[in-house]
Amino acid sequence: MRNFLNKTILITGASSGIGEGLATSLAAHGANLILLARSTDKLDALKQSLENNYSIHCDVYSVDLANRKARTDTFKKIYQQYPTIDALINNAGFGIFDSIEEAKISDIEQMFQVNVLSLVESIQQLLPSLSAAKKGHIINIASFAGKIATPKSSIYGATKHAVLGFSNALRLEIEQQDLYVTTVNLGPVKTNFFQTADPSGNYQKNVERYMLYPNDVVDAIVHALFKRKREINLPKWMEIGSRLYHLFPVMTERLLKKQFNKK
């Protein structure tokens, strides 16, 4: 087991799914944690559980990352309290699968606020703390939706495409500060993400046999922490598909039209 003793790691979207799994795994590895999510009750319960089961310190911040003032105030407070942060894992995000005719402007704006703008602001506000760490690490959870365009995910895909573009430029900007930047591109994962993205459950049924388990994602991220790794792509076969898509987009869209229309 890798030892993250005396490392301080911040995780957004930490109250459930991949974020909660990361918090538990990293606490077991000895890391001190800063956890952000909307649910105060879930965060408090998680904090108590982690501190009781592992010899770590855990701070929690209840914040709606779609609210610009609330997140700005929270990031400033964290920066003041933590002059050094060893890793930032931007896990918070959500999607709504709608055609562009059905999409609500309020949903579009909220997806960009949470998936893109809060991610960018967290890095901008906390970069001095990350720079103070020796070989600090920024991990941004993106998606294969940012690499492969599919119907009914034009807005969600656009937010994840923005995360990929931002992360790739950021990597070049801060490489002299001895900071690593890794993007995590995922296919569908068995989490409560689909309660919002796919309330009907139709898409989940269509892709159930392809879905990842959260623990597989958690293990891959923990294994990559504090190592120079450009991307984590899961599942591997989807990475191959994305490469083919970029080389032969028209042919791929024709061949996989049925699969692309599963939402």
Rank of each mutant, 00 (worst) to 15 (best):
S154M: 09
S154C: 12
S154Q: 12
S154K: 06
S154G: 14
I155L: 05
I155C: 03
I155W: 05
Y156N: 12
Y156E: 02
Y156I: 12
A158I: 11
A158V: 06
A158R: 08
A158P: 06
A158H: 07
T159Q: 09
T159R: 06
T159W: 08
T159A: 14
K160V: 13
K160Q: 09
K160H: 10
K160A: 00
A162Y: 02
A162M: 05
A162P: 05
A162R: 03
V163T: 07
V163N: 12
V163H: 03
L164G: 07
S167D: 08
S167I: 05
S167V: 07
N168W: 08
N168E: 09
N168T: 13
A169Q: 12
L170S: 09
L170P: 02
R171C: 09
R171A: 14
R171V: 12
R171E: 02
R171K: 15
L172A: 13
L172Y: 10
L172E: 14
E173A: 07
E173R: 06
I174H: 02
I174C: 01
I174F: 01
E175M: 15
E175S: 14
E175K: 15
Q176K: 15
Q176P: 10
Q176S: 12
Q176G: 02
Q176V: 09
Q177A: 11
Q177W: 04
Q177F: 05
Q177M: 10
Q177R: 11
L179S: 06
L179C: 08
L179R: 07
L179K: 01
L179I: 15
Y180P: 04
V181R: 02
T182N: 11
T182D: 05
T182H: 00
T182V: 06
T182Q: 00
T183Q: 02
V184F: 02
V184D: 01
V184I: 10
V184P: 00
N185A: 10
N185T: 07
N185P: 04
L186F: 01
L186N: 04
G187E: 09
G187C: 10
G187F: 01
G187Y: 02
P188E: 11
P188I: 03
P188D: 14
V189H: 07
V189N: 00
K190Y: 00
T191A: 13
T191D: 01
T191W: 05
T191E: 01
N192M: 01
N192K: 13
N192T: 15
Q195S: 09
Q195A: 02
T196V: 06
A197M: 11
A197C: 14
A197Y: 08
D198A: 09
D198Q: 04
D198V: 07
P199T: 12
S200F: 11
S200M: 00
G201W: 05
G201R: 03
Y203H: 13
Y203W: 14
Y203I: 12
Y203F: 15
Y203A: 09
